[in-house]
Computed example of a mutant assay.
Amino acid sequence: MTSTSTRQVALVVGASRGIGRQIAIDLAKEGYAVVVAAKSTTPEADLAKLSPFPPDPNSPKSTITTVAREITLAGGEATAIPVDTTSYASIQQLTYARLDVLIYNSGAIWWAPVAATPMKRFQLMQRVNVEGLYGAVQEALPHLKRQDPRGGGPKRIVVVCPPIYSRFFRGKTAYAMGKVGMSVMVKGLGVDFEREGLVEGGVGVGGLWPAVAIESAATEQFTRKDPSYAKDLRKSTIFSDAVLAMLKAPASVMNGQLELDEDFLRKQAGVTDFSKYSVIPGSSPRRIMPAELPDLTVKEQDDEGMRTDSSKL
């Protein structure tokens, strides 16, 4: 991303296809200069051979190169930077002169009981989901703190991670360990922002998760087996709209919160009709998330005892 850009800059990690691609496209439409980051790329010589263009957004042909080209052809500003989120050194190469928004969408998935989850699968999920997020946040924080939010718009981190509740762990413990770890990052970093007085200045972190299954490469395995499954899917635009709503909401409203896309759009953007998001027009997709989520606070919430900051010892 060039240092001469006067636009706010958004880094979308995991933006090659599906939800991440849609978020990058819509951020560009909102006027952001977008850093499109993921592992998959397309050689420049092969771009002209792609037909149709843009390629299927849920296929391997959709890469950070094609997404960046989509954005620039539409008049937006985008830079594609390859990244391997299992490597902190690779994350550190995501260099930019300015950063206003970090969206962490990278994720490794393996849904199986513990006995059927090999160690390599477990390690991959922790490295992509937890360590990758932690590394991206570490690199983003100096940028978010250094700039004056009141003079340049909101400074936000949005993480694709779920609310914390017991049913989520069933049948996918290893996956849930990583995803809930990401949710803990949102809750804990939100407290850090509050204590440092950053929320009042417009800095905030929030988690977002689909209330209804979204059309993606992950759900294609189900629609291939049974095309009727598409009636229970929504378009990725609902999630992208929720991300934009989270960026526009006051930091005090979204900071440290774990939200569902539909519920956040209803509360903060006044959306009441979600029919336009259905993959099959006229269908009523099944909600996969609970209608009510548990309150994680305790009566002794404000009693921290002898809180210690190891970095100051």
Rank of each mutant, 00 (worst) to 15 (best):
T2F: 08
T6L: 11
R7I: 01
V9Y: 04
V12F: 10
V13F: 08
G14H: 05
A15K: 07
A15T: 03
A15D: 04
R21S: 11
I23F: 01
I23D: 07
I25G: 00
K39F: 01
S40E: 08
E44K: 15
L47R: 10
L47F: 02
A48S: 15
A48G: 09
A48Q: 13
L50D: 04
P52R: 03
P55M: 03
P55H: 01
S59V: 07
K61Y: 04
S62H: 03
S62V: 03
T63E: 05
I64Y: 07
V67R: 06
E70L: 04
T72D: 00
T72I: 02
A74E: 12
A80G: 13
T85C: 14
T86F: 08
T86R: 12
S87A: 11
S87Y: 07
T95H: 13
L99R: 07
L99I: 07
D100T: 06
I103V: 15
N105Q: 09
A112I: 03
V114A: 12
A115F: 09
L124R: 01
M125E: 07
Q126A: 11
V128W: 00
V128M: 03
Y134A: 15
G135W: 13
A136V: 02
A136W: 07
P142T: 10
L144A: 02
R146I: 00
Q147D: 09
Q147K: 13
Q147Y: 10
G151C: 01
G151L: 12
G152C: 11
G152F: 13
P154S: 10
V158M: 06
C161Y: 01
Y165V: 01
G171C: 07
G171E: 08
K172F: 00
T173L: 14
M177A: 12
G178D: 03
V180W: 12
M182K: 04
S183R: 05
S183Q: 01
V184L: 11
M185I: 14
V186A: 07
V186F: 08
G190Y: 05
V191W: 11
F193R: 08
E196C: 00
L198Y: 12
L208R: 04
W209N: 04
A211R: 08
V212C: 08
A213V: 02
I214Q: 08
E215C: 00
A218H: 10
E220V: 11
E220M: 13
R224G: 00
K225G: 06
K225P: 02
P227V: 00
Y229C: 04
D232W: 06
K235W: 05
K235E: 09
S236M: 06
I238G: 02
I238A: 03
F239G: 02
F239V: 14
V243W: 04
L244C: 05
L247F: 04
A249W: 05
P250N: 01
D261E: 08
E262K: 14
F264Y: 13
K267V: 05
V271L: 15
T272V: 10
T272G: 00
K276Q: 15
K276Y: 04
P281R: 07
S284M: 01
S284R: 14
P285R: 05
R287Y: 03
I288T: 15
I288D: 13
I288P: 00
M289I: 00
M289P: 01
E292W: 01
L293D: 10
L293F: 14
P294Q: 12
D295L: 02
D295R: 12
K299Q: 14
E304G: 12
E304Y: 13
R307C: 05
